[in-house]
Design a binder for these strands. Structure first.
Lengths: 248, 248
DNA sequence: ACAATAGTGTCTATCAGACATTATCCG
DNA sequence: CGGATAATGTCTGATAGACACTATTGT
């Protein structure tokens, strides 16, 4: 067992497994990180949690929160840990998005990053992460070019979120524990960038088995007739789905 | 820049990025591999391409084909390379499935594996890979326990394929270049494990814009009235989708 | 002729979308 | 009361699914 050369960029492109049993010195070393696309709906916009980089490369540029996977934790656990560190909240919806592994996506060394998508209700204030100079919610429509390939990752995450609203109950992940049908509708309208018929939307979501659980309470926070309050139900899929780009 | 210790299992669980600029010696080393779920439809069954392991651990057990990502190639390129090596065919549909990163999923060292899903027409014979003792098409219903966590990866891939048939034209990826509506229907029936109404299926798939392109030719390979032959169209999504667990 | 498969037509219950109406708050 | 929002009801065109029927081959 010999030491690995410190540069991750080996010149040889030979298949390291050829020629028999491999040992740790036979494979090229990679760093593995997690990057988080954390989305929320606040002040009438779909927003992503971004951090401002405090070091080179891309010093001062916005980037997705994330960090290295530790050697004794699973990749999923690393994502959950980073999410808790960045938002200060646990129990958020978190799912794997995709893995990004271009050779030069990080100019310093070979890094493979596993991206995760998290959907959060409107949290009070982003917690400044341990490894980031500043954290902030930024409307996705105003995000320009992020560090590394994070712009691509963010748009993949936004597209995934938009698609997931169609056939899963994840729209409720953007709402607080108790919410009205109108608040859920606003989530759909903002995430999809369309306007939906309040009457048809109400009929649709209240008709889906297991999507909403009435609390019996009402609220009149927006004036007008008080609206019934609901909690998330146990439904795992939305059937029939809500179809994007329609009157619902 | 110091050499990395050869054991990938560092004892320290500290965040390697804390305390300033990191260098390659600051991050824990991982091996990165690709695993392939290659599916085809042959002899009335959904089959996966499996290889028999020629070395420990799991010597003699069936496993998914795959291999190490080389240091100068992207993860996607590694998957495409391995697929070409295993099947001898290029141009197959290939998409990322998920990434599996439990700490002890490989008993020898820390390996993060990016799994890919490939759909193939009925290929003549699997090519014995360079690093596998034998390769074979195995009906997924007869697959028992595979090496590593490959059983889990395979079932994730099968479920993804089943879901993709609903709203994408990927059913045609299981067919050869020219095919009949009945052959496409058999694909759906076998992958989903249901029986579909031939008349409604015909009306449905021929009604989707851009899914099928008539060649003008016909064939009578199954007796009866000759069937029109089609090629894959350019449609990227199936709208309206075909719904599983229905009469179509 | 008959069997077998391909392809078209028809009917009906259901549903999405448009929109009217009623209900219940606040000021 | 008027304004605002919530919730329910009605109508219509489109469609999924069930199934009858016609078309074209081989034996």
């Amino acid at each position: 067992m010999s030491a690995i050369v410190s540069s991750p960029y080996r010149q040889s492109d030979d298949n390291p497994i050829l020629g028999g049993v491999y040992s740790p010195s036979d494979f090229p070393p990679f760093a593995v990180t997690v990057d988080l696309v954390v989305l929320t709906v606040r002040s009438d916009a779909l927003c992503a949690l971004l951090v401002r980089r405090g070091e080179a490369p891309f010093l001062g540029r916005w980037a997705l929160p994330g960090g290295f996977v530790r050697v004794s934790e699973s990749v999923d656990a690393a994502a959950a840990r980073e999410l808790a560190e960045e938002t200060g909240v646990t129990g958020l919806h978190l799912e794997q998005l995709a893995t990004y592994g271009e050779p030069r996506r990080d100019p310093r060394m070979r890094v493979v990053s596993v991206a995760y998508l998290a959907l959060a209700p409107d949290l009070p204030v982003p917690v400044a992460g341990t490894d980031a100079a500043a954290a902030s919610w930024v409307p996705v429509s105003e995000v320009s070019s992020l560090a590394f390939d994070h712009s691509r990752i963010l748009s993949d995450g936004v597209e995934r979120a938009r698609a997931k609203l169609e056939y899963t109950p994840l729209g409720t992940a953007f709402c607080s524990a108790e919410f009205t049908v109108a608040e859920l509708r606003r989530v759909y309208e903002i995430v999809w960038g369309v306007s939906l018929d309040p009457r048809n939307f109400h009929r649709k979501v209240t008709g889906v088995e297991g999507l909403l659980v009435a609390t019996g309470e009402t609220t009149a926070r927006d004036g007008g007739r008080p609206a019934a309050l609901f909690r998330r139900g146990s439904a795992a899929v939305l059937y029939p789905p809500l179809v994007r780009a329609s009157g619902v």
